[in-house]
Design a protein around this nucleic acid. Sequence first.
DNA 1: CGAGAAGTTGAGCGGCATCAATTGTAGTGG
DNA 2: CCACTACAATTGATGCCGCTCAACTTCTCG
Lengths: 235, 235
Amino acid sequence: MDDIINTLSEAPLFATLTPSVLNDISKNAHPNAHKKGKILFIHGDPAEHYYIVKSGHIKLFRETVDGTQTIIDVLSQGNVFGHTLVFEENTYPYSAEIAESGIIISLPLSDLRDALYNDNTIAINMLRATTNRLRLREKELEHRSTQNASQRIACFFLRHTLQRKNDSLVIHLPYDKMLLAAHLGMQPETFSRALLKLKKDTGIRIEGSSIYLNTLDRLSSYVCSSCSERFPCNG
Amino acid sequence: MDDIINTLSEAPLFATLTPSVLNDISKNAHPNAHKKGKILFIHGDPAEHYYIVKSGHIKLFRETVDGTQTIIDVLSQGNVFGHTLVFEENTYPYSAEIAESGIIISLPLSDLRDALYNDNTIAINMLRATTNRLRLREKELEHRSTQNASQRIACFFLRHTLQRKNDSLVIHLPYDKMLLAAHLGMQPETFSRALLKLKKDTGIRIEGSSIYLNTLDRLSSYVCSSCSERFPCNG
DNA sequence: CGAGAAGTTGAGCGGCATCAATTGTAGTGG
DNA sequence: CCACTACAATTGATGCCGCTCAACTTCTCG
């Protein structure tokens, strides 16, 4: 149980809450081990729980009638999802599938709802978090129209080297290339070719799912000219 | 001054507020007439005000160093923007330009901030509104990868006939085609050709900036198969 | 009425998707 | 532990959608 509270308080969303509030929202929390491929919920299901990723990866996606999937996001450790459905009578706006086996903590939305209406801090934290997410989506929309396939991959690398604090210039792809391709809005074949082009253009070294780079400069000058943000950006 | 309060209370964001709170946030509000082309603020400026559109249209956009613009959104009457920068020390994440002359009410973020920290209702309203916006962006991202140019135009038409309650099947383009093209993420030339194709495929009639359709069915079957939502959707 | 912008149309090109075939890899069960 | 299988990943060939450049027409407004 302490374990759960620890995981919760690692999320920015809940970090600043008082222990008593934290206790209230986590009193009905349940950690569950899930295997790859498991569907947590489907687009349109009535929403009753929200989730926190303790380990593994979650794919959030939507699909059209003909089965075409679009990835909304891929979540990893510490990420919260489904909490935006806290308002009454909501249904999930996307489906969630385990992309990489791991442990997911599920919490009832009703507990969060109670806390939300009582404690202003939660509302403000959630507002902050949702605003940030909105910013990310806007940026993503920009990238889709200003950056080509190779640049989007490079941009992903830059964001993921900056995230890990140590300055060893190695990137380990967090999940398989098919999913990464879909996340970046391209076909696997295109991903493969674009990665090859990126290698030629910037001199990165690729070994399976590890990417080695000598410097960030070449990557950033390759990408950031097609972006409205200055270089050390937050994604 | 009553005028301002009226405009404010039309926005869902402020609709449910008590008169006293509404008074607090609008006490330093100023309506300003602006002409087309006027820049309200630029991406990166320190944010001190937020705005409500009383009339006219606002273009929110970002641009890369080489001058390429991407449209974040085009706002019309009743829309609020900039309010998500209510948290301290923020800068505008995009630029805002008057796309169609009109009256814009500006309000200091500091007043909103005070109200936000005091009144839970505002925080919750803002959370609701921001969450909705996030959903729209996610849907837009989906549309960019599943729909072609003609379908995106048709989707725009559908959303805009549903908005106006009367069932006269006439759509008046709310702003000029160049801006609409940019908003839908395509070039003006592409827009022109795609509209022609749409006409051929669905039998709509086009007269300048007015679009006539006999029925919604043909449009919806043309578009909604490439979307994860069921037909009468909210955009 | 004239100037400048919006809008349309044409020609050509390039990036990405698609289809198809092959190689690489990881997980499964005998 | 290896053989088998299923899927991930790469590579090739081809086609199409939307971008670009350019010319022309239509509209808007001073």
